[in-house]
Design a protein around this nucleic acid. Sequence first.
DNA 1: TCTCCTCGAGATCT
DNA 2: CTCGAGGAGA
Length: 318
Amino acid sequence: MNSSQGRINKGNNIIEFPHEYIIFDLETTGLDPTYDEIIEIGAVKVVDDKVVDSFNTLVKPKYELDDFIIHLTGITNEMLADAPSITEVIPKFINYIGNSILVGHNVNFDINFVYDWAEKLNLKPISNDFIDTMRIGRRLLPELKHHRLTDLADYFSISTDGNHRSLTDVNITMQVYLNLKNMFFNKYSSVEGFNAVLRSFKHGIKARDIKTDKTKFNEENPFYNKYVAITGTLERMLRKDAMQIIVDLGGYCEDNVTARTNYLILGNNDYNPILRGKKSSKLIKAENLKLNGNDIEIMSENVFYDIIDEYKEEYSKE
DNA sequence: TCTCCTCGAGATCT
DNA sequence: CTCGAGGAGA
């Protein structure tokens, strides 16, 4: 419809800890930048993790606040009566942030409001890169059930008194950010180190990294001392869990079909639009090896389940 | 080994 | 939106 779909000039969501940045937060009349209005903007300029300057203003909306927002923020229509309009405030705020990196909690939300107003007023697009404390919090504290600003504040024992006002939330966000920064460098020692961890994560679990603590195996089971690869997505378990069972039965897992592979287990590729109706590269390789007389058996997922069911006691824990 | 793709699931902002 | 799981190709 309008601007809300494009935002082509938006900056990048980055995970960095720069020397200078601006933390900001908006209060609005709702969640949708297309229909809802900004009623408060708060921001602080930070250098070397010390606040050096701040920006704070209420904004008079076109429409009256509803009870939900009055309750949530504590901002009333009376408080907004003499406030400047958004067309007055936005240019000042955009001037204030300049090219600074922006920090906020789920900061996409706030940036989208400002971005759309900049566009509406024909100002230069908001292309600042930004740091999202929610994203970093999720990364660093995956064990937390929720990662709302108040959840992270609670975790770090930061007071949330008076929250849902811009400058207060900016303050909370800053303390959360500094705590996360601390955690980050305790864990990774550098942003580069973190990116390396990220990459290794993305490539998923490697077959050779799956170890068993079993030392005695039932040599009757078909996987004992055999090399096993899997192709496709398994219907009933995660690939890594299937691999764990195989190594617990005394087998060896591989990421690819090779000359020594003894079993290829076929998962389901139907969901994959690229592969639909086609054979995976692993399957083609396995068929060729079989034709060449290799000791390799191609096994459907269901046969795999039958086998592991038969040897359940050998791998099931405790 | 690395880079890029797809899909579904699940949060968060006022 | 972001992430994880998984796959393909170079």
